[in-house]
Design a protein around this nucleic acid. Sequence first.
DNA 1: GCGATATAATTTAAATATAAACTATCTAAG
DNA 2: CTTAGATAGTTTATATTTAAATTATATCGC
Lengths: 159, 159
Amino acid sequence: MSAAPGLDSRLTDDSHESLRLWLRLLTCSHLIENQVRKALAAQFKTTLPRFDLMAQLERASQGLQMGELSRRMLVTGGNITGIVDQLERAGLIVRTEDPGDRRVYLVKLTKEGRRQFAYMAAEHESWIVRLFAGIPKREQRTLNGSLSRLRAQLTREQP
Amino acid sequence: MSAAPGLDSRLTDDSHESLRLWLRLLTCSHLIENQVRKALAAQFKTTLPRFDLMAQLERASQGLQMGELSRRMLVTGGNITGIVDQLERAGLIVRTEDPGDRRVYLVKLTKEGRRQFAYMAAEHESWIVRLFAGIPKREQRTLNGSLSRLRAQLTREQP
DNA sequence: GCGATATAATTTAAATATAAACTATCTAAG
DNA sequence: CTTAGATAGTTTATATTTAAATTATATCGC
């Protein structure tokens, strides 16, 4: 009974290559996600979805629409509404009205939000670097290339 | 504005290899998860966590304890309680008492649960194979090896 | 045996998450 | 202009998820 056998303990034989790959991908994601979530809670009293949303905004100084956040974060619009509510209540972001289209909000980091995010982002990256420390840089680059092709594949042929 | 830019649209330059790798891993997971979730809902009126829990049980004919399900699925025990409640209410699994330890339940698939899972699993694998169809088998094997090493790395050094 | 500690599972409260329905606004065809 | 349809965002109902507290049972040291 190991510490975290993971979902891919499902398969052992040598066929089912794609299925095993998917389960392994999911296991690695969950393992990293769990560690990052705990570190964000312990050190910054925040959550992964809030951190991710702020990270999206940090790269878009002009602000992002709710729908654009939904597309980039790969979650539904209703979900974005909830997370933006939380962060706005905390004073870290604001909904700005778009004079050209009254249906739209432009969501932006506040000064305090930018300050807090900069502080957290550096720590966050150091955790990630530590988690991947056992994988040689060369192999990381190969992995990155394969996942990039996979992502392109997955986004191309949406029904 | 592409269909699904993904979380890793955060970074563009050539440093931050590990961070980019993590974001790409997460994006691929979410893209696949979203497709599988929709297919499970549309074709079988079920959800990903219920399917995953049944998959764990299918490989353990003697049954699994709640805590063992929690460890294998990388989620908290409270979460397992909820999913097991749902599946038990649907008649697909049962909680069996362990005569040797009265704190423990052994969770098992019912006959109907085994039947339904077998039916779903074949379809599920065909979706996965299709999603990975653009990645050559050779590259899938390489990816599998790298992710296997990463998983070992991530499970080894738990604090 | 007895009490301290550990383990297994559930419960609780709060945050995420989805899908579907709804409201408000915009765009386009006539 | 007016209305039909499309788009942006929210709301609603329900399910998943976590962390922390709680309950019940085991185990261990004495």
